[in-house]
């Protein structure tokens, strides 16, 4: 299987779907002539022309509103946000329109819309451009929220999202664009939404994560196995809404302890939801309170050293694992 970057996998997903279905189009700021701030859309304007690769003004509410209308009338628009942070300008269009049109129309009208773009820290974009929005969007019924952590999932989930009938928030990790991995071609690449996946098997402790924190957790798990003989099971949620908890429950039934890792802030974050669901469902299996590893409760600093301190790192995951396993600082 060919190795590709996360960035190229996203472009490939869009181009394969645009080749396959003439109703698919993409719009966003600087995606055409400039070929995208993160070069996700490189070469697309040349190939598909300005009717299907649309450079928009700096007007997110207008972009999303336009796209909602397109979707209601049968097109399949993709809106690229330069960063997902900018989508909050369009929050009313997303939450009160895209997410509710089917409900308000009694199921007569779907909104097959994908809003995608990078989020999260790690590339020194400072406080306004480094936030994580998964729990914000996942709170609302009517939306689907995806957060792939590998190139293959980035491609497969995006292709499925473009083909679906629902408005989808597709959260890319800015810090993973350069990550390489095997990526299947064509139909084989499709990944169903709402399926968590065990990415590393283990018996001693369950680590639940997604996106970049899943990659970091995997590195911790490998290190733990090599250095301490502790086998951590790592679960990649991949989709935050719908949230597939069954693999997590199964894993906790085996390991009796869980650590949830998220880049976003602790209060009301995805890890809180996951920890609560574990407690509700497999309470009697727990030998320790579910531990959370989260970003620090501050706006993201610009300074490189402070940014590194503000997002979760490996030592914190190790510390949480020691805690739920009742192992001292060994």
């Amino acid at each position: 299987m060919p190795e590709k970057t996360y960035r190229d996998a996203i472009r490939e997903a869009m181009m394969e779907e645009m080749d396959r279905d003439p109703t698919v189009l993409i719009m966003g700021e600087d995606i055409g002539i400039y070929e995208g701030t993160f070069r996700i859309t490189a070469g697309m304007l040349k190939k598909y022309g300005s009717k299907r690769v649309i450079d928009t003004p700096i007007a997110e509410a207008g972009m999303v509103g336009t796209a909602v209308g397109m979707a209601m009338l049968g097109l399949r628009p993709i809106v690229e946000m330069m960063t997902i942070n900018f989508a909050i300008v369009a929050a009313d269009q997303i939450l009160n329109h895209a997410a509710k049109v089917r409900y308000f129309s009694g199921g007569q009208v779907d909104v097959p819309l994908v809003i995608r773009g990078p989020q999260g820290a790690g590339v020194q974009l400072s406080a306004q451009h480094s936030q994580s929005f998964e729990s914000f969007y996942a709170h609302f019924p009517g939306l689907k929220v995806l957060a792939p952590g590998t190139p293959a999932d980035a491609k497969g989930l995006l292709k499925t999202a473009i083909r679906g009938k629902d408005p989808v928030i597709f959260l890319e990790s800015a810090a993973l664009y350069g990550l390489k991995g095997e990526v299947p071609d064509g139909e084989e690449a499709l990944v169903p939404l709402g399926q968590s996946r065990v990415v590393r098997e283990g018996k001693d402790v369950t680590i639940v994560a997604y996106s970049r924190m899943m990659q970091m957790s995997l590195a911790v798990a490998d290190k733990l196995a090599a250095e301490k003989g502790i086998e951590a099971e790592v679960i990649d949620l991949r989709t935050l809404r719908p949230l597939d908890m069954e693999p997590v429950y199964q894993s906790v039934r085996k390991t009796h302890r869980a650590v949830v890792v998220q880049e976003q802030w602790k209060l009301f974050g995805a890890a809180a939801e996951i920890a609560a669901a574990i407690s509700e469902t497999v309470f009697d299996e727990l030998d320790a309170p579910v531990a959370r590893v989260t970003g620090e409760d501050v706006p993201m600093p610009y300074a490189r050293n402070l940014e590194l301190l503000a997002v979760p790192h490996e030592e914190q995951v190790l510390h949480a694992i020691r805690k739920v396993m009742y192992r001292g600082e060994d």
Binding site: G122, R304, H313, E314, E315
Partner: peptide, 21 residues
């Protein structure tokens, strides 16, 4: 940290020994 990591994407992994907590 600043000296060790002049801003690569994957420098997370090189977080120094210091106990972060």
């Amino acid at each position: 940290k600043e000296v060790a990591d002049p801003g690569k994407e994957d420098d997370r992994k090189k977080t120094p020994e210091t106990e972060p907590v």
